[in-house]
Simulated assay, not measured.
Amino acid sequence: MMKKIAIIGATGMLGQPVTYEFLNASYEVSIFVRNPSKAQKLFGKKVNITTGNLTDVARLKKFLENQDFLYLNLSVKQESGEHDFQPEREGLANILKAAKETSLPRIGYLSSLVHFYQGQNNFDWWVFRLKADAVSQIKSSGISYSIFYPSTFMESFGKGAYRQGNNLLLSGKSAYKMYLISGSDYGKQVIRAFENNNGNNEYTIQGQEGYTADEAATLFADHYPKAKIRIIRAPFGLLKFLGKFTNKFNYAANIIEALNNYPEQFDAEKTWQKLGTPPTKFLDYIKKCP
């Protein structure tokens, strides 16, 4: 019998490759979105689309009925503030309420590896506190879970945070290597985690190769075949100063500070034993990147 997966956050940069991998694995995929036209453009008629928002528990409950699994790709909008409605706080509470009422068997949740930088070098950021609380909410829900703590995704250089048009934006200096992983490789690991479906699990998600942000940006700029890529450096002090006035710059300053200084160590051996070794090399990703 075809297994059913419900996905919240399917249209996001990191939700898309996971959704495509579930489709490729012949799951019946249902997604919960605010923008159905974007979902239709991305996935066509391959998915079941429910339109709604995370404030609507009744709508969430209907969406989750008779599903085998739920995968969550939630995030904090850079423009938002600590006291705004947050998908990973109030939204997650509503999701868990609906999930318990429908007796959902298992939840998969995308967290982050870098959020463990919280508390190091006197670093304190409400976004990382929120992410830690989200993990606690899931663990105390009584629902079986698989929680994923990924390193930086290759997509962050291909079309995400670091890339703006044909520019790669850097600030400060990255002190430690990040073990980059592609969204597609991660999606395959998520599927294996659900198929294992055994107990509560937490996984460190990392690729085979480690690069600092500077090394990764240089490699991307040197080998991207479709356009000339420039590396632009913004003074970190200026970013911190601008962060005093706008949420977006505050978010950028904090995440860059954390990424540059988090002492990431390779720790994915156990994950690879259970979920498979991610094969994609960064150079191969660059050459195929849109």
Rank of each mutant, 00 (worst) to 15 (best):
E28P: 00
F63M: 02
T55E: 12
G52H: 03
Y71A: 07
F43W: 12
K38A: 03
L23G: 06
K41M: 12
S75M: 13
F43I: 10
D68P: 04
M2S: 11
N35P: 01
L70V: 03
Q16A: 14
E21C: 13
K77F: 12
F32A: 08
G15P: 05
G9L: 02
D56C: 04
V33L: 07
A6I: 08
V29I: 08
N73L: 01
S26Y: 09
M13N: 13
K3L: 12
V47A: 06
T19E: 15
S26C: 10
Y27A: 01
L42N: 07
V57G: 04
V57P: 07
M13Q: 15
K45F: 06
R59G: 14
L60M: 08
E65L: 12
D56N: 14
E21M: 14
A39V: 04
Q40M: 06
Y27Q: 09
A6S: 10
E28D: 13
K77H: 14
M13R: 12
V33E: 05
P36F: 04
A6D: 03
I31L: 07
L14P: 00
N35F: 01
I7D: 14
F32V: 06
A10D: 04
K62E: 09
F22N: 06
P36S: 08
A10Y: 02
A39F: 05
S26M: 07
N48W: 02
N48M: 02
T50Y: 09
L70P: 01
K62T: 10
E28V: 13
G52P: 02
A58P: 00
K45D: 08
N24L: 07
T19Y: 11
L70H: 00
L14G: 01
Y20Q: 14
G12L: 07
A25W: 02
F43N: 11
I31A: 05
P36G: 03
D68Y: 01
S75H: 09
T11W: 09
I31C: 06
